[in-house]
Structures are given as C-alpha cells and as structure tokens.
Amino acid sequence: MSNIISVKDMCLWYGEHQALKNINIEIPKKSITAFIGPSGCGKSTFLKTLNRMNDLIPNVKITGDIRYEDTDIFSPKVDVNHLRKEIGMVFQKPNPFPMSIYDNVAYGPRTHGITNKIQLDEIVEFALRDAAIWNEVKDRLKKNALGLSGGQQQRLCIARALAVQPKMLLMDEPTSALDPISTSRIEELVMELKEKYTIVMVTHNMQQAVRVSDYTAFFLLGELVEFEKTDNIFSQPQDKRTEDYITGRFG
C-alpha cells in the first residue's frame, strides 16, 4: 500500500453552499503533493477535511469516503484526537502559543501523555532540529515564542507539529506570510521532511509547486480538475482549464 490517503466521491457543504464536488484522489506516501487553484476553490476546505479540522465549524456536511491508511476517518471508532496526532497541520499564519519556545514544542507530546523531562527534552531538540531552527533558538528555549520573527515562528510551528511524530503534515500556504529568505528555508525544509513524512501543501505560487512538489492537484470551483505528477501537469496538462490556469490566463 503506497497511498496514505484515498478519497472517493467526497462532497462537502457549508450549510447550503457546496464547497467540494465529487473529489477523488489518492495521495502517495512520503511524497510532497501541492494543491493549487484560484482563491475560494476549496483547497483549504479539502485540506482541513483530511484531519477533520472541519469538525470545529458548525453546519458542515460531508458525504463520500475518506480513508487514511485504510481506515475510514469518519467512522465512530476513530479517535479524532489520535487522527490529528497522525496528521499534523501547519497554518497559513504562524500561530505559536503565547508561551515559551520549549513549551510550544512540548505541547503536543504533553497532550499525548509524555511527562518525563528527559524524554521531553529529547523530543523538543529532535523536533527543532528537524524543523531547522534548533541553532537559532537553542539558547533561548525558555523565552516567549512570540518574540521570534515570522519565519522563525513558522518553523517553530512546524517543529511543534513534528513533535507529536505525525505520519503526515498538512500545510496551508505555509510561506504566504513570509519573506523570500524564510520562504526558501521552509521550502528546503519541506523537501528534507519528505524523507520521513507525507506532505500536502497548499500554495498560490506556481514556481513553488514546481520547485518543491512531486504531485500537483489542481482545484477549480470545488472540483478536482487534474491530479498528476508535477512535471507532467506543468509540461503537458491534460485539461484545458489546467493549462489556462498555469499559464496565467485566469486565477
């Protein structure tokens, strides 16, 4: 089994408004998948469905089937907190908690029952190293995380997500609030992370999708128009609408 997520005929409504229509997609393990498409086409909505963050929004209705490692994520047997531990999330705007850098990273492990100080220290260091921010913060772990720069905060949020040892990482435009240098650091980081994790990343930046991702999914008006290897989709798109979008004719 090389797919980690498999979605069949999934539809989603916000109240009366249908935001996703008949989505079918298989996301391969240990790869980077980019979601592209114009604003409002449902990228974030779909991303948040995968770890059931949409549960927090009232009046959302979902039909169809989503399997994570062959388990139906909407089955009543599934512990949604455990699902979110397996499928972590990084948000568009860096959102570190107003506490120390250490406590931010330790938040997840503590949530899942790790209290041993030595073990926590290890996890915090490993997560911060994996997120390529260890050297910048190792002398100020007890300082408030809100004192970091935007780029550092976003890498801290990645570290925080990694600290619960997820299998998969959902990133919703993780670099859109960042400067070019921080952006390229995060891109490098994401490419390293795919050794260990499956990554799905929403981006509005075509170059970023080309640079970073292995697969690309193009969404339009709630539909998944095309899902292909990134090289193929950008060199020979099958659908006219994809071609129009990536050549900048609309969007």
Binding site: R84, K85, G88, F91, N95, T111, A161
Partner: peptide, 17 residues
C-alpha cells in the same frame, strides 16, 4: 485568537485541554 484553538486542536488536544 481562534488560531490558538486551531493550533491546539491540530495537535490532537481534546476540548478541555
């Protein structure tokens, strides 16, 4: 901020936590 709650839920924290 709602983003704090989202961040915590996203890490698998339960409501009370």
């Amino acid at each position: 901020p709602q983003s704090y709650r989202e961040g915590a839920f996203g890490l698998g924290a339960g409501k009370w936590r």
